[in-house]
Design a protein around this nucleic acid. Structure first.
Lengths: 192, 192
DNA sequence: AGACTAACAGACAGGTCTGTCTACCAACTA
DNA sequence: TAGTTGGTAGACAGACCTGTCTGTTAGTCT
């Protein structure tokens, strides 16, 4: 186990944490590698050792975002109780919470995908993330007894995406609340 | 009236048309001024005469997008008949149409805002655009007899944004169809 | 003690980006 | 005819970006 000389975790962690913060705030393209290096107090060679290219760092960033967001989504659903029907609505509290958070700036995946070329690894990773989330919602919808779980899941993730994406501009909690109300209406309609 | 030597319209139009095409496909940040110049067959000085900075060109691009998208939205609503209630659902056909179009790449406003700094003119213009559209939808909702037109408008534009934003990845018409079904359910619930 | 590993510090190359500037040209107008 | 206007062509400055490379330092393991 190599002991890090600096107190705040290993170099890799510091790089990734800094990249997470800067990339989310300014977009990966808006942050140069030199800035990440300066802010994380790391040598350039060290960064390129852990992440062979900036693109790899961006992908690692997206993985971190995926963990955080998907985790928040599942936690919000869990907090809504045991009924899958309530969980489908409750997961929107993750959106409400995100909107309230200082520095909220919309969906990291959408934002990053918007500034990446069409067939890039970033796009593939984003599609992967969206698919995983939608599969989870689909399962929830099935357990709730929806006649067409795939459709309901598509509708709810659409709503989630809308709420998240619009957050690039302003994290108005009213938007998240409207999304939650919509979710309630859609779930009610699907399980009538 | 100065006669343009090149057949395809004035220099300004050519620049704007080219910028529209390239900016939408690759994102404003992904396209250099030199590329716009080369593709539109215009001198650099001419571009900077009509648009003092690249930012001004980006704003002009957004205005063009606004006209196109808001126009499509109103046309789709009009095609749904005279009943405001039907128009609220019918406007989603603009989304369906956009998804089908070759080269569809999501919401130009969201995509551009994602790669622009927080307090920039691009953000302000995007907020302005979203507000105008929502005001129009609110009016439609009021005429349809919604108890809370502002809420219904917020819900529907949220859905619209979700469908548009997700299009950065793939223009799946199934997404647009799901959005339209959601709209129908939400309108029905609000006007029950 | 000696080898090895991880990290630091920073120069550097090669490319791209925005925006400015000079010089020239063609058409219209007074 | 002379001036004005709107355009072309392209060099250039200055900033910034990614990725490579050299050399040094500190801690760990055998």
């Amino acid at each position: 186990m190599p002991r890090p000389r600096t107190p705040a975790g290993s170099a890799r962690e510091r790089i990734l944490d800094t990249a997470f913060r800067l990339f989310y705030a300014y977009g990966p393209r808006g942050v140069g590698v030199d800035t990440v290096i300066a802010e994380s107090g790391v040598a350039k060679a060290t960064l390129y050792k852990h992440f062979p290219s900036k693109d790899d760092l961006v992908l690692a960033y997206l993985d971190k975002v995926d963990q955080a967001w998907f985790g928040a989504l599942r936690a919000a659903a869990r907090d809504a109780g045991d009924d899958p029907r309530e969980q489908l609505v409750g997961m929107f509290d993750a959106l409400v919470g995100a909107c309230r958070r200082e520095g909220y700036h919309g969906c990291a995946f959408i934002n990053t995908a918007a500034e990446s070329p069409a067939g890039s690894r970033v796009h593939a990773r984003t599609v992967e993330h969206k698919d995983v989330v939608r599969a989870w919602v689909t399962d929830l919808a099935r357990r709730a007894g929806a006649a067409d779980p795939a459709l309901l899941a598509r509708q709810l993730t659409l709503l989630l995406d809308g709420g998240l994406a619009g957050g690039v501009l302003d994290g108005d909690p009213a938007v998240a609340e409207a999304a939650k109300r919509s979710a309630r209406a859609l779930v009610d309609a699907a399980l009538a």
